[in-house]
Design a protein around this nucleic acid. Structure first.
Lengths: 199, 199
DNA sequence: CGGTCTCTTGACGGAGTTCAAAGCTAGTGG
DNA sequence: CCACTAGCTTTGAACTCCGTCAAGAGACCG
């Protein structure tokens, strides 16, 4: 059971098989169909989430109806609304399945206990946090300094497989550009490729 | 000596005066004049930095000469280039004094030792990291979803005292808009205030 | 096979950028 | 303490790129 999770943790840490199974045993499994919500803004984020397969997105819904995507979470990654989870306060974001998705859920008190019991899990967790920080800093830089086209190209390079799994409007909502601009850029790219072919 | 630092740590933690003095004793002081660099891109960030007074900024310099500011660090806050510091790899950013500034510096090996010796310092450090994460998430949301004007107003609300201390072009470089747009927004604000006064 | 969601495309309008010039301010040195 | 300079800010003109609106084609799902 949860073999994907166990393999993941075994490959990422030095934890013993027994410990890994113990960690897994504290989680509950949940299946989400496409577009099903895992967390809705206003709710408190009570669980740490590991994605077994599928893909989630965390997005912010403005009062004018526009969506802005903070992150995509594909298989074998973790997600949650950090601030809501840490402080147990209402969340500002929504987390939903982009496609059919299976997740493991740990209630915060349970995971906190695991972190206390298993120092190596704590260390691993800190490593993930560090990566999140680097990633967010880089994202800020990209949005601040890049043109829409540069952002798109960086996105494609960083996540080569996402494009095929996501509707373009979500990519646009992630890059902070309009769908129109995105298709314009993609059109220009195609032109360019065709031009190269000609030679 | 370093009384600002000691007061700060005493107010933020439960650390004993003795421990605080011990931590402070591992740091070296450095004075920076206006526009002096503390870290230049390409260098490795070898120190953790606490700002006693003054203000630093961390910015990214594009090849086209444009500057993009990741953060301002006023008195009684910490700064560094996280990724460069953690991994001891060349930094992508520059850190410079916006005004005359005094800082305390801890060499990474020394600070690592302190973190190991003093669990409460580690806890405190984690709290700061958490705040950084919340802050960066919020910044991403603001840049993605806000108009230039909204971003400016949020900036003014969040950091009421910064405006008076920073050249506007740096505010623009932080908000990700042109200086021209920033002055336009400010002009519109003034008009509005004048309108209110009339009534 | 119908309906919904998605993507593309065109026309248009507007907000933001660039470039350039001029006024203002603050810091420096004499 | 004053004069000067360098950097900062404002403003105008022209332009460009992006966004909104709207329509239509295509793909996918039930």
């Amino acid at each position: 059971m949860h073999t994907e999770f166990e393999n993941y943790l075994a490959s990422q840490t030095d934890l013993s098989g027994e410990t890994i199974r113990h960690i897994g045993s504290m989680a509950t499994m949940r299946k989400l169909h496409k577009n099903e919500a895992l967390l809705t803004s206003g709710e408190i984020c009570r669980h740490k989430v590991f994605i077994i397969n599928g893909m989630l997105r965390s997005y912010y819904l403005r009062t004018d109806g526009s969506e802005h995507i903070l992150q995509f979470s594909p298989q074998l990654t973790w997600t949650l609304d950090v601030e809501s989870y840490d402080k147990q306060t209402p969340s500002l974001v929504n987390i939903e399945a982009v496609e059919k998705t299976e997740v493991l859920l740990w209630a915060k008190p349970d995971f906190d206990k695991l972190l206390k019991e298993i120092p190596e899990l704590k260390t691993f967790s800190e490593r993930l946090i560090a990566r999140t920080i680097y990633h967010n800093r880089n994202r800020i830089l990209t949005i601040l300094s890049g043109t829409p086209e540069e952002r798109y190209l960086e996105f494609v390079n960083t996540y080569p497989d996402y494009l095929a799994r996501l509707p373009l409007r979500m990519v646009a909502a992630y890059l902070g550009i309009s769908l129109k601009t995105l298709t314009r850029i993609r059109h220009a790219q195609l032109q360019r490729e065709a031009g190269i072919m000609d030679k």
